[in-house]
Simulated scan of single mutants.
Amino acid sequence: MELAVVSVLGADRVGIVAGIAGVLARHNVNIVDISQTVVRDIFSMVMVVDMSKADVDIAQLRRELEEEGRRLGVMVGVYHIDVFRYMQRI
């Protein structure tokens, strides 16, 4: 598996999960794990996704998810699992 982490943060609204998942599905990226919560109207979500069958590289996926995030009014981050793990050690 080629894993990546997708993080989403912003004001809660209808369609955030659908919008992000739609981009992933379009590129054959499988959601392996997902956690989401809403605290005082602030939406946060973390997904672990498998890119091993994706038809795009992580840079292109990041661009498209960031664009979708702008459309939805949320911030989106996409990190290769190794980069994410390294960031957590700092």
Rank of each mutant, 00 (worst) to 15 (best):
V83R: 09
L72F: 00
D82Q: 10
D82K: 04
S52N: 13
Y79N: 15
L24A: 07
R89A: 10
Q36C: 03
A25I: 10
R62K: 15
V48L: 12
R70Y: 05
V38T: 07
A59H: 15
R62P: 07
I81G: 10
R26Y: 10
R63G: 14
G69C: 05
A54L: 01
R63M: 12
G77F: 03
R62C: 12
M51P: 01
Q36S: 06
R85N: 15
D41I: 00
S44Q: 10
M51W: 03
S35E: 09
V74D: 01
T37K: 11
R26F: 11
R63D: 15
V46S: 07
V38K: 00
I42R: 11
R63P: 09
V48T: 10
Y79E: 14
D50I: 06
D41R: 12
G22R: 01
M47F: 02
A59G: 14
V32M: 13
H80A: 14
V78C: 05
I58V: 06
G77C: 07
L65M: 02
V46G: 08
N28C: 12
R70S: 12
T37F: 11
I81K: 13
Q36V: 05
G19L: 03
L24V: 02
D55R: 07
F43N: 05
V48W: 08
N30V: 08
V39K: 08
I42C: 09
S52C: 11
Q60N: 14
Q60L: 12
V76K: 00
S44W: 03
G73H: 03
Q60V: 14
